[in-house]
Design a protein around this nucleic acid. Sequence first.
DNA 1: AGCTCTTATGAATCATTGA
DNA 2: GTCAATGATTCATAAGAGC
Lengths: 312, 312
Amino acid sequence: MATKIKVEQGDCVEVLRNYLPEYFDLIVTSPPYADRRQHTYGGVKPEHYVEWFLERSAEFHRVLKPTGSFVLNIKEKAENGERHTYVLELILALRKQGWLWTEEYIWHKRNCYPGKWPNRFRDAWERCLHFTKQRKFKMNQEAVMVPMGDWADARLKSLGKNDVVRFDSQVGSGFGKNIANWTQRTQAYPTNVIHMATECGNKNHSAAFPQALPEWFIKLFSDEGDWVLDPFVGSGTTLEVARSLGRNAVGIDLLPEYCAIAEAAVADAQYQLLEERAAYDKREKKTSDRIHRKPDTKLPPEAARKPRRVKA
Amino acid sequence: MATKIKVEQGDCVEVLRNYLPEYFDLIVTSPPYADRRQHTYGGVKPEHYVEWFLERSAEFHRVLKPTGSFVLNIKEKAENGERHTYVLELILALRKQGWLWTEEYIWHKRNCYPGKWPNRFRDAWERCLHFTKQRKFKMNQEAVMVPMGDWADARLKSLGKNDVVRFDSQVGSGFGKNIANWTQRTQAYPTNVIHMATECGNKNHSAAFPQALPEWFIKLFSDEGDWVLDPFVGSGTTLEVARSLGRNAVGIDLLPEYCAIAEAAVADAQYQLLEERAAYDKREKKTSDRIHRKPDTKLPPEAARKPRRVKA
DNA sequence: AGCTCTTATGAATCATTGA
DNA sequence: GTCAATGATTCATAAGAGC
């Protein structure tokens, strides 16, 4: 069964009215921040942001499944030496709208924007607010497990800079193979701090998201075949990732040009996957399930037997 | 001139009434969190936390200099599957009280509390809220610059899964070259994400702060000879650090036993410094300024010439 | 001195049990 | 019903033991 990806042009508050209730399993988005993208979204003023957002999040609530999640990547701007409070107010308002504020994940941007100001350092983090409709919801913790800390620490701490340089030059010396062994040994659950560089993986457009960010949440809060929504899809990163993970997805954006970019990005991703698949088939001389592949991490037996999920 | 350190027992709201207005240059504290440490602080209920705190922060505002800073280390708890909102409400309320919410620093705890739950991962971060009375305030950015070497080490230590995968797959792709770049520069300004483990001290008390956390803010927001206040001083970490950095300090705590511990800690620190000094004098055969020493990192010339400060 | 290995222990949360 | 107490889960450190 093929993965369905759809890009819709318009204001999400209107587009979503055509969708049935409880249609989506996951909403993950990075909305236009207040007063940003003025030329595109008309620059919602900070003092009107909450009101503006609530109208849309009401629709999100309607189209989200009871066991679904809503992940909101956002960060308040600083102005006149102070942080704006509209994000705090938004959290409080969303709770009044019926959302549960389940968690606040921190996206730690390792390579943040350069700059220097007299009253603050560079901003290296953003909020990823996790809202749900119920206390029990779908969460696949095993899908995002990380190699255990002992591993990286012990091994890398003992690596001097010379060792790293040597490692750099001795391609294929067996180091990679060893790493594979260690990762097989033990895995740990991650924390609520997500370390990720702001790499825009695809070159043609400036992605607000690094691909790995929506990837993490899509793996964590949805299954293959589920429906993912990004109501402010921008350049389409969420859609690309959703497709590559075997999720169906809908992306909405106000701007026709963004919709075009998003569609192109998805088409590229699709093409690339087909090429990969062809190459793989040729190599392996048999069909593969590469496109809809399982998470590449080995699950511990007990985790595989009873994954933590909630019945819808 | 000797550094003055004072420990006062009592509720800070009462103790501070005896202090003159605009007495302190910096307030840095980690208050008892709502419903935590019940056996010691009586556990302020989340729904009364803001009210309880505002009474005290009004005094903080009175005794803080106009160019001073107030750093609040706090994190809301999760209960019944949801994060509490009292910290968000506290930020909004403090602004109404006249504080400027200048910045929110993230303390990323590398070794966070273990545990597993169906709906969340381990909590690995806390807020360090930075409030001021004016848009212009004292900030010594150069005092907390990070040597590039250490920074590279920290980055290697904190390698997450994605780094590992990249490490593994892109052998020889320039990892070593990047490291070479980092080590060439000497110092960098930090960001608003502070990467620090929670040292569990070998002492008799549960050390909430790692020493390095108040140290960072004391260096950043005060000068030698300034007055630092910790109104919930607990085991006295702030006082120890203040003394070692040549700042005068006042610590207040409700509990007599904590005050005793704090006084002992400061005495220990004092004793240790004297010993160090004696040893140093013996080695160097001359007097040293080790106790009030400058940061041991070399400043770039231009930074040393014009440190960024605000006149009082 | 330096290293491996073991052990104890935290500003945690949730589900369950008992009053 | 509401609330308080207990158990289960889990991992990055420091400290100590052993070589």
